[in-house]
Every structure is written in structure tokens, then in C-alpha cells.
Nucleic acid binder design. Structure first.
Lengths: 261, 261
DNA sequence: ACCTAGTACATGTATGTACGAGTGGAGGAG
DNA sequence: CTCCTCCACTCGTACATACATGTACTAGGT
């Protein structure tokens, strides 16, 4: 703790003690005195250093945690998070040339990056489309859709959940309604069936995860998620699929190319 | 509080009390019993209802706040956040046809959406490019860049901060190095100067804000930010500008179009 | 050599108290 | 009637204490 050089509290400051302590630790992290993976001094050590109550300290540590700077591990200590964004999604990831290699976008990308992709929790059901889904797909309210849910993992770590909706009229009885949708994924099947894909629209939000999302993606506290809704349009201008995905923000960097013209 | 129908605690559950309370309140919010803007029962009311200590309650409320579901207002109460995403950035926002209308992207978009755009804190300086900036701009380390910082507001509320970097060799002595960059913004100036823009690349991350960012954007606790870095490429393939922006996630939804081909 | 119990230490949960500080309404002074 | 003071209620900060629970290491027994 010596090299940390944590300053003393400033009793004249208006800033509350627990925030001052959080500032000191944050600064130490920024400065590199507490590099990623390093153990933050324990609560008792910090209590002794600052001469404050444990609650005050926990409030300070809570701030850092909610900022995503640290993770607490029960019984072990508090550690500085290391968050190397691993995956980048480029804007040509759904290009037909990739699909023709016979691999779904996620699989191809992950292997290219040297990771081991996997998919689990695949569930398929058929239900009436909810209002927003129906709207995006251009369906009448109450029309039926095939719902494909699954979770993507890289090297065993969950990174993304995805739920696709395809009009039942298109997908019923096809391989799209099977757990294994076959080489090239859903989009390859759609094209085989004559729905030549024209373009995609992606809508991106950023927010804190719901409880179930945090659980499914094993997110540390203070980690927000990308919420991405992609709509696939066929050549006739009709939407043929929408895919609702929630992605851990630690792992993803999204990349897009925009025309200037 | 009667219509809230908050359940009693389950003493047999393994789930800690403060999390159970958070669950109840979250459920009430989801259910609509606590609509956006509604006042959450005060700490003392909840203490009476559940028969727990104040700290326990504050822990529960802290969870909701860190999830971005509520905001506490000192002396008034805790309220359910209403967060209508207002702005959508379409992927053609930098199309030349908009630029030729003589308005910068932000101004045009905001006015179209019926808001009053403004820009403040405009600062211009010239410094040596940091490593990552130099790399993106294809400059040698230590080469000089013009740095334009500013903050964008809609109806007086800050929504985005942006910092642009342009090689000094290009921008020095031009209007780009002036606080008012003129009609159509930086990109219009670059094209006038013969750097015909070819395409843009955007790189999007999502994370919790730093303290200064939260302050500059007046973010409530539990609100993450989009961190977007755009690189503008001229027809010769060289990068002519990069723009590093931090956007409040409750105000923005980003939209992109991807080709299928 | 191996396994186990104990122990020290870490964070997690929960109670209680006290006072500070912002908000807004009630009620009295002018 | 208006203004202002005061008070009740809100959340914010900080203290002290207790016990629960997870982790890692050590000493001891088998």
C-alpha cells in the first residue's frame, strides 16, 4: 500500500469523505499505481489508513464498483477490473460472401479472432407477435412468429444473448424452425428460400442490464450492455427477420462504415 | 402505497432482504404500478412496511439507482426515471446533401426533430498528437494537430461532448481553427479545401462515464454512455479528421444501415 | 503423502444511532 | 394579503456493532 501514496483526507473540503476516498482510489487506478488485476487494499487496511468507519469505506468502494472500475470477490478482496475489449463487429459482417462460406456471422468472426465460439440455450417457439415485433416486421397484430432464442459464448464465456423473430408464414416447417438452422445460419436459409436479402438496419441502445441479463451474461456490477435490434430486409423491401440482441459492453466494440455521399 | 401491493419479505429465502426489496420495487416499476415520474415510497414508509433498518433499505434503493431505474432527489424523494430516447442518429447523417444545406449534422437533425440545438464550451488548441490519435490519422508521433472541443445541447440540456482532431498541416490558419467553423461545419470546410470526403468509420463502445463526463453531461447515476470515435477518410484514402464523442445513453439511439452484399 | 479442521482475513448483510441539508407547506407577523 | 419563519419530512453522510459467509493457508492427524 506504500507505493499507492494515497493522500490524506481533506477535512476542510466540502466533498464528502467517502467520495474523497473514491477519488483517491480512482486516481491511483488511472495513474497505474493500481494496474488491472491488482488487489485494492482491504477494507480494514483502508479503515486504518483513513481512520473512518467501515460503512464509509464501503460507500467509497461501491462508487468504484458502480463505475465498473473494480470487482469485489467475496472472501478474497477487491480487484481492479481488466477490460480488454475483445470483439469488434465490423459493418460488413453480414455480407453474402461470408454467408457463402457456410458459417454464421458469429462463428466465422470468432474463429478468425482465434476464439472458440459456441452457442447454447437454443430455444424455439411459435407465438403471436408482440406489438413492437409485429410493427417492425410489418405484420398485423396477433400474427404468428417463430422465435429463436440462444446465447453465444466465446471460450466458454457468455458474451451475447439473441432472440430472432421470423414470420411463421415464412419459417414454419423449414429448418429455421429447427434448433440447428444449418450452415450459414438463418440468413443463408432465407436466401435459399428465395428471400434475397437487401440490407439490414441496426438500432443500438446502451443501458444497464436487467437482472436476468446480468445473470445470463455473467456481468460484473457496473457493466452496461449494448442492446441491438437488427431488422433484415429482403429485395422486395419487406422485413423478413428481426434479431434482438443484448451484448456485454466489456467484450464488444461495434464498428460501422458510413458513406459520405 | 396501497395500490403498489408490495409483497412481504420471504424469511425462508436465501436471497438477502435488501435484494428482495429491490426485486419488489423493480417489479412494481415493470408492472406499471410505479409509472415513470412516480414517487417511490419514502425510506421511512418502506422501513415501516418491511420492518427493516434504514441501511437495508438504502441498499435496496441503491440497486435500483445503479440500474438506472430511479433517481433520488435530496429533500424530495426517490422517483422513477422516465427516459424517452429522443434522438436517433441515422446512418446517412453525414451525407453530402445535408452538408450542402449549410448546416452541421447536429444542428440539422435536432431542428428536424423539433428541438433547439446549441453548442457551448468551444475550445480550440494546437498540440502534439497523442499516440492513438496519431495512429488513427496516420501521422508520425509528435506531429501537430488542431483540437476542437465542444459540448452539444438540446433545449439547454447537454447531450454530447465532442473533440475533433485535424492534422495541423491541413487546418492551420483556416476557419477550422476558428471557434465558428462556418456553415456546414468542419466537413464542409474540408471539402471546400479539396479534401473530398469518401467515407466515415465509426467505432462504438459503451461504458460507465468518468466523473468529468457525468458532470459535463449532467448524467444521473446509473446512466452509461456511448463512446464513439469517428474517422473521416478523404478520397485518397487518408484520414483527415477524427472525432471523439461521448453521448448520454438516455438520449441517443444509434441507427445504421448495412448492405447485405 | 494426503486429507481435514481450524484459523485468520476477506467481503456480505443487517441493526442501530446521530446529525446534516434540501424541500415544501403551515402558520404567524407585519 | 403578503412575506417570512419555522417545522416536518425527505434523502445524505457518518459513526459503531454484530454476525454470516467465502477463501486461503496452516497445523495436525491419519
Amino acid at each position: 500500500m506504500a507505493d499507492l501514496a494515497l493522500p490524506e483526507l481533506d477535512p476542510t473540503s466540502d466533498r464528502p469523505v467517502f467520495k474523497q476516498i473514491a477519488d483517491h482510489l480512482r486516481e491511483a487506478i488511472d495513474r497505474g499505481a493500481l494496474p488491472p488485476g491488482a488487489k485494492v487494499p482491504s477494507e480494514s487496511q483502508l479503515m486504518a489508513h483513513y481512520g473512518v468507519a467501515r460503512m464509509t469505506l464501503r460507500n467509497a468502494l461501491q462508487i468504484l464498483q458502480s463505475e465498473g472500475l473494480t470487482v469485489a470477490e467475496h472472501g478474497r478482496g477487491v480487484f481492479v477490473r481488466s477490460r480488454p475489449p475483445v470483439r469488434r463487429l465490423a459493418s460488413d459482417r453480414f455480407a453474402r460472401r461470408h454467408r457463402e462460406r457456410g458459417k454464421a456471422a458469429f462463428i466465422a468472426e470468432t474463429e478468425d479472432a482465434g476464439g472458440k465460439p459456441s452457442v447454447d440455450s437454443i430455444q424455439i417457439e411459435e407465438t403471436k407477435a408482440a406489438a413492437d415485433v409485429a410493427k417492425r416486421l410489418g405484420l398485423a397484430k396477433g400474427e404468428s412468429v417463430i422465435v429463436r432464442s440462444r446465447r453465444y459464448l466465446i471460450d466458454g464465456h457468455p458474451v451475447e444473448t439473441a432472440v430472432s423473430y421470423i414470420p411463421s408464414e415464412i419459417a414454419r416447417g423449414t429448418r429455421i424452425a429447427q434448433p440447428d438452422s444449418g450452415p450459414g445460419g438463418i440468413y443463408a436459409r432465407l436466401e435459399e428460400m428465395g428471400y434475397r436479402l437487401n440490407h439490414f438496419e441496426e438500432e443500438i441502445r446502451c443501458r444497464m442490464p436487467l437482472r436476468e441479463e446480468a445473470k445470463a451474461l455473467r456481468l460484473a456490477p457496473g457493466v452496461p450492455v449494448f442492446h441491438l435490434v437488427r431488422t433484415a430486409f429482403a429485395d422486395d423491401g419487406k422485413a423478413v427477420e428481426i434479431c434482438d440482441t443484448v451484448m456485454s459492453s466489456d467484450v464488444y466494440v461495434l464498428m460501422y462504415q458510413l458513406p459520405a455521399q
